[in-house]
Nucleic acid binder design. Structure first.
Lengths: 259, 259
DNA sequence: CAGCTGCACTCACATATGTTTATGCTCAAG
DNA sequence: CTTGAGCATAAACATATGTGAGTGCAGCTG
């Protein structure tokens, strides 16, 4: 099966029965480096409480100065900004295991909002706890930093796709990325993932109109690259999809290394 | 003078005679938080050597795994990526005081190249030294982290501008940003900055063709918002330029806060 | 001072993507 | 069983931006 090759090299540690129970952040970090038991405990203990946010509600608002950061345990969320004529741009899509606003720990003021695309389970980590972690756990601090660096790498990749790829290629690129990111946190089943995102939301992500999103998706379907009905996205031809989207996964840092 | 209001609130510490001598990174960090003498010394000592890279040469290449990070002391540099048809996208522009690849400390493999747009003076900081700093100076570590977070915030802002603003607004936005960033490190003289960037490079930054960059610049000139001859960029009407570019400076974190 | 070279700038024309408006699903609510 | 909301889809038309080809200037270089 085509996907085998892509994933063989990442050596995913995904005991399929337990993944949904494991803290997806730990799952994600362990993909990139070793975590000591003490570090894992520090992370688990950092969670002050867990809350649920319903779809289409704001998780954080632009202008907020939160004193805690939100870790997404389950669901899909988006960082977004509204510009003058009411148009919206989504600058990041988040899946289980992602910190939604870890940067607010140091940036202080939110320069964008974060929205729940689906019902979201969210763990909150007080900034005071993060400060304590940075004082006491240098290695864990580096891994949290790494987390934000990967966000940055994804932003750069999106910029490139947005500026220099066709709408079709851009969409293919995004699909490749989301598929891999979901896979890493145990949210893929074979070649399929649940992707509960409307075409309008995809448009706001890619900087396209909904009409054009629709055209582009149909092209990818017609080419036999994907199936996408309801929430179920299936990759039909990974290699060709990668090629169309000019996708290489380097920027996701899916390698386990000492950091 | 119009600019007074915008800058009054940032309380810049810029003894104009000394700025060019001071390490611009320290200048930049002190805009955002207090640095102890010990921290400043640690930063100064982190510099292993200073090198000069000529215009149009690569500073780091895609695929590299550097064991040191480059701090730009003087000049202009760009992070870029080439896509299949030879088109190039610039995902970041860097000025004095910016780390060009601080992220390579933790990401390990460069997923993009960094290019000197002009002759660049570059200080190199070994990753081993950065690791030592993260082990011994938690607060300084947070400030370095902050540095990469601001890069991320700029990426998000560019994404929004690229996806949802017109070419003209996008250009205005970029000009506002560059002006402020140069001002913070003492590279502005009144309403003017030296901006030695060609229209082709601006195109690669904004995701536009050179022809359209030219059209857009002429529009901004015709509107009386800027003057831009040779390398000299002058802001003629800051308030209107901000409005056209829908620019707000929050994302640059120009506030001094405890971090 | 002749001849390049790199850039800014132009014009005519091409096209990818946006806009507007409408239709028809599907699914939940009544 | 009907209604309505939210989406995906469609077709016709509009436009912002790209493409290709060329001009002219300024500053090097020999």
């Amino acid at each position: 099966m085509q996907l085998r090759t892509e994933f063989g090299q990442y050596r995913l540690f995904l005991p399929s029965t337990t993944t949904r129970m494991t803290n997806p952040l730990i799952l994600k970090l362990e993909q990139r480096d070793q975590l000591s038991d003490e570090e894992k405990r520090a992370l688990e203990n950092a969670i002050a409480r867990v809350r649920v946010v319903e779809a289409d509600e704001d998780i954080v608002r632009e202008g907020d100065r939160p004193n805690e950061s939100s870790l997404l345990l389950d669901g899909f969320a988006a960082r977004y900004k509204i510009v003058s004529n009411g148009r919206r741009q989504i600058s990041a899509l988040h899946v289980a295991g992602d910190f939604l606003d870890l940067h607010s720990f140091l940036l202080k003021t939110m320069d964008h909002g974060v929205l729940a695309l689906t019902t979201c389970r969210i763990a909150t980590v007080p900034h005071a706890t993060l400060e304590k972690i940075t004082d006491e756990f240098p290695h864990l601090t580096r891994l949290l930093w790494l987390n934000t660096l990967i966000d940055g790498a994804i932003h750069r990749e999106w910029l490139t796709a947005m500026g220099r790829l066709s709408a079709t290629a851009h969409m293919a690129h995004l699909i490749c990325e989301l598929y891999l990111r979901l896979k890493v946190v145990g949210r893929a089943e074979g070649d399929s993932v649940q992707l509960p995102i409307t075409q309008a939301e995809l448009g706001d992500t890619l900087g396209l109109s909904t009409v054009h999103v629709n055209r582009v998706l149909q092209e990818l379907r017609k080419e036999g690259l994907i199936r996408f009905q309801g929430d179920a996205l299936t990759i039909l031809d990974w290699e060709r999809l990668k090629k169309v989207g000019e996708f290489t996964s380097t920027y996701l840092s899916l390698q386990n290394e000492d950091r």
